[in-house]
Design a protein around this nucleic acid. Structure first.
Lengths: 218, 218
DNA sequence: CGCTTCCGAGAGCACCGCTCTCTCCTTAAT
DNA sequence: ATTAAGGAGAGAGCGGTGCTCTCGGAAGCG
């Protein structure tokens, strides 16, 4: 079982999710393809295993990075999260694509197995920004939520995460989350062109600063 | 030829890029698969045709939306671009994923055929923000580009687009571009959860406002 | 009429996901 | 020790994929 996941990760890293083949995993395992079906119900099941594996590894990387930064250094914590996700994404672009890129056609990750590990990075960001807000170090732009459905969605999100923050902080969290991963995806997926504007790492550091400014973190 | 692209687009919209099958296109065309190879060299060639087609359609949609907004309404123009891209992305999520999502493994879009149409949206955004800067309506956050390689990349980008703006504007353009598509990708690819926080459209409008704030547009 | 050129059909190769059956081989209970 | 049970791999087979090859017919042209 562990071998299957290991070889699967290897193939995922080399060939990408769409090319992940249970038969190839079986070949590398020195076994006929039907034997693998004893352990993994289907190719989608293997994908799910790799999704959970990836979320866990990314979550661990983020947690480890956060442990090195003092709790009241909010800008530093945000940068640590960003750099940790970026480093992991560049090291495992195919897994990053599987988790945060376009969905694999015909495959939907089962929420009951991926929702927990899948939101660890989001929770880390939300925790950071809400703590900063409580400490008076987050001044997000004012927003007015005129849509009652969106207000309900914000309330649901607040309940789910146990937060007590105004709409502007929720909006900043959502925007900051999406913007951060937007910058990351753009780099990992090569939208900046082949050379990434010369120095992708420096560009990302710039983006981290602009992100802090956008959510009002100081 | 036109039929092939049309049916290909249909399959792309329904099944996604990875499931795009030249054999299925041939079936729908009422023809045996090898016949299609007379016109399309390979599956990747078909993908390239669809990529160019998608870029063109998206670019046209953005241009049409911009034509409805007065040139000095910079916030309105930014919103128009954002809404146009969003509407097109929601209408054609598979094509959007093909253009802006994770790369299809083993496929690389040939730059000479996709670079022109592929940068139309970026050019629209850059034009908007640089014009706003020239009109004194864009006050992006100050940045210092300490990496010489990144500075060279910024200069190359300035030359390529024929701009005369400081580093802070270039940085704002890149960040705004990535952040906008980050928000869009998050929604299109379903990272906001099944219900999109209750009202995806209202959320996007919020994000548009925060984006304007982040790049300093007024 | 003959010739070339195009176009579709068909067979075939190797790969894929997945299912089925068959045969071992280990384990546990009697 | 014998026997029953279950796990594990092998192998064949189904329909699908991308792609290549050859063949035959049709259309245009000298």
């Amino acid at each position: 079982m562990a071998d299957i996941v290991r070889i699967g990760r290897h193939h995922l890293a080399i060939d990408g999710a769409a090319a992940l083949s249970l038969r190839a995993v079986a070949r590398d395992l020195g076994v006929v393809s039907s034997a693998v079906y004893r352990y993994v119900k289907s190719r989608d099941e293997l994908l799910t295993l790799l999704v959970v594996d990836g979320y866990d590894e990314l979550g661990d990387a983020v947690d480890a990075a956060l442990a090195e930064v003092p709790g009241d250094d909010f800008v530093g914590r945000q940068a640590a999260i960003g750099r940790a996700v970026r480093a992991w994404a560049l090291a495992e672009p195919a897994t990053y694509a599987l988790l945060f890129g376009s969905p694999v056609p015909g495959y939907e990750a089962p929420a009951e197995r991926t929702l927990g590990p899948g939101t660890r990075v989001l929770r880390a960001l939300v925790t950071l920004w809400t703590e900063a807000y409580a400490a008076g170090r987050l001044s997000p732009p004012e927003v007015e939520v005129s849509s009652t459905r969106l207000a309900a969605g914000f309330n649901a999100a607040r309940d789910e995460l146990g937060l007590d923050v105004p709409d502007s902080v929720v909006a900043a969290c959502v925007f900051g989350w999406a913007a951060l991963f937007g910058c990351l995806g753009w780099e990992v997926f090569g939208q900046y062109g082949r050379d990434g504007l010369g120095d992708p790492e420096a560009l990302f550091e710039l983006h981290l600063g602009m992100l802090a400014g956008a959510v009002g973190l100081s």
